[in-house]
Design a protein around this nucleic acid. Sequence first.
DNA 1: TATGAATGAGGGTTCATTCAT
DNA 2: AATGAATGAACCCTCATTCAT
Lengths: 202, 202, 202, 202
Amino acid sequence: MVSKQNREKEIFKAAVAVIKEHGFHKAKMSDVAKAAGISYGLVYHYYGSKEDLFDSIVSRWWDRLFRLESELRENDLPLVDKLRAIVFYFLDAYQRDPALVTVFVTEFSNTTSKLNAKRLEYSIKFVDRIDTIMEEGQAGCLLRQDMKPRYLSYIFMGALNTIVSSMVLVNEEIKGDEQKTRITESILDLFLNGARGAKGGT
Amino acid sequence: MVSKQNREKEIFKAAVAVIKEHGFHKAKMSDVAKAAGISYGLVYHYYGSKEDLFDSIVSRWWDRLFRLESELRENDLPLVDKLRAIVFYFLDAYQRDPALVTVFVTEFSNTTSKLNAKRLEYSIKFVDRIDTIMEEGQAGCLLRQDMKPRYLSYIFMGALNTIVSSMVLVNEEIKGDEQKTRITESILDLFLNGARGAKGGT
Amino acid sequence: MVSKQNREKEIFKAAVAVIKEHGFHKAKMSDVAKAAGISYGLVYHYYGSKEDLFDSIVSRWWDRLFRLESELRENDLPLVDKLRAIVFYFLDAYQRDPALVTVFVTEFSNTTSKLNAKRLEYSIKFVDRIDTIMEEGQAGCLLRQDMKPRYLSYIFMGALNTIVSSMVLVNEEIKGDEQKTRITESILDLFLNGARGAKGGT
Amino acid sequence: MVSKQNREKEIFKAAVAVIKEHGFHKAKMSDVAKAAGISYGLVYHYYGSKEDLFDSIVSRWWDRLFRLESELRENDLPLVDKLRAIVFYFLDAYQRDPALVTVFVTEFSNTTSKLNAKRLEYSIKFVDRIDTIMEEGQAGCLLRQDMKPRYLSYIFMGALNTIVSSMVLVNEEIKGDEQKTRITESILDLFLNGARGAKGGT
DNA sequence: TATGAATGAGGGTTCATTCAT
DNA sequence: AATGAATGAACCCTCATTCAT
């Protein structure tokens, strides 16, 4: 017999897989059940509704992300290390659970309409946290001060998001830590130093 | 009496508004009809199906974007002017038709599952074009050469996309040309020069 | 300018063609209009409704058939000539206007549910007339008297109907009068003399 | 609680009844559900679509008919017994399940346009089988040889079909075996010996 | 006459959810 | 815990018919 926790986790994973395959709105509860190898009635023993099930996926993602952010805040790391940790986290998450990240990137990022109020909150709150990190960087003169912190957040998150999106798009696999490190450093380098070349003018 | 062309345009606008409101998948044809102030049967005189109607929205967006890219290519502008034009285009589009841009940003960017093959093509083709621009910049030493052009595209498009997304998210209004110019220059500055501050280290 | 009569006839023919192609219930007024080369609004100038139009087709067929039967009755022909005339009529009609006969055979014969009361009447009335012919044949000892006339009608009409149906089924063309004569005589022969062979027993 | 098999059969019967009442094309799934005393969603648990449900009716009819034909072929009966069995089968089927036969006769016989390819195949295949029986009869000199076997099939099947049709038309009930036997013998007699009377000429 | 834009009732189908077993 | 039969609201789409021009 399968334990209650395991069953729940199986359903969760099945749901992620189904959403990845068909998209959030076309994901059917019966597909989730089929993917989990159970009857669809049973899904309702573990998750009260489709909304519930899918909310739990969103929460899982954000909760982890906010937990990371908390740790970074508490540990008082240097700015670059904080940013590095965030980038690394995304890549690592993608390596460990590509389906979950895929779902997040393709279905929940950059979307308002599918988001109920609670989900929207997550997005806004997270950007706020990044803003705070950027502000600290500006305060310590590690980041330029002639830009609103929000702009710094935008370009940082934008780059990160786009890179992960593109990996998702082509189903790219991350093979080892070194690859994650390389990508991470590239993003940081670009973010900090910009794209300008030798003859790029002043 | 409304002309045939106008009717079609009205339905188009109504569809954009409805998608903005409810999202692509929850947008009902009956809502589109209601928003356009017509019977829903009439929608089918102008668009063969929901798919048709929504495809036409996607096409409209991309066609314009590719037209801009064509012009840039033909006119042989300096790199920075090309990038500036692209950023400006997004902001201008947002100012002129916030709903259309909202729909694009929230529904069609960063999504694979909802995209049929044709739509996916657009995405891939556009990134290719941006890559080409970046390659040219690298060839002329205007952009650093120690990065794959695709990475430069990522950070550029990511920043652009994220900024527009965030404007969409908070329903921000663009008031005048100067605001567009200011945002554009900020993005370019950040893209080219990076976020590093005085004490940011080497 | 097309005369009113001609227009009406064109629509009629178009309707027959469309019914032949798609069947009675899937025949669309817009298809009829398209086949007639006119706008679908115009169809309603000539026929008040779909029902009207299709009723007129049914009526046309039956009216001709009953006219034939009247003539046969008035002219007091020998039994065999009457039957021959009826068979010949079906084949001739098929040769002249295969589409009309096709529609009749495939859509209106042997059907009750599609038939409104008026159409059902036609069927019943026609069998009655054939019964009368058979009765006369029995009275004159030209036909065996140990069968209800209705049975004689059945086997006669059944053979006729099935043969025409099968020509319709394979889109067979009738080329000349001799072919019609040959088929007619075969049917009559079979009807009168039966299928028994030399060793068929008593 | 109703067993799964019974439910399916109930829906089947309800569908037959509804088609009998309204005809194939006007038969609504909601009517089928209503007739079966269930919600219309449930119909889709048992039959994937309207097409599916109605195909199964057609198949049921033909499968039985072909099974009969197989038995006749294997048992190597005398010609007359084969023909008798076929006629008897139709009458028996009508007695047992008048609605099914009604639907078959009124909706699926003599129709091409409503028939998809698969259904058309059934028709053609069955006539072929009857042809074979007739050929055998001709080979054994039990049937006249101056006619194509197909013509013999026509008159035989035509008579049979028309008789059943007419019973359907007037909702005639078959009361006992003797009635079936009587009708069967009449058809055979007419088929074999023809309708000619004493003074019917040579 | 002639057009085709406009209407809207109606039907097939989907799928989240409930519940008897 | 587990099943899947059962429900029915919801949605896409069709098409006969009307009517302004």
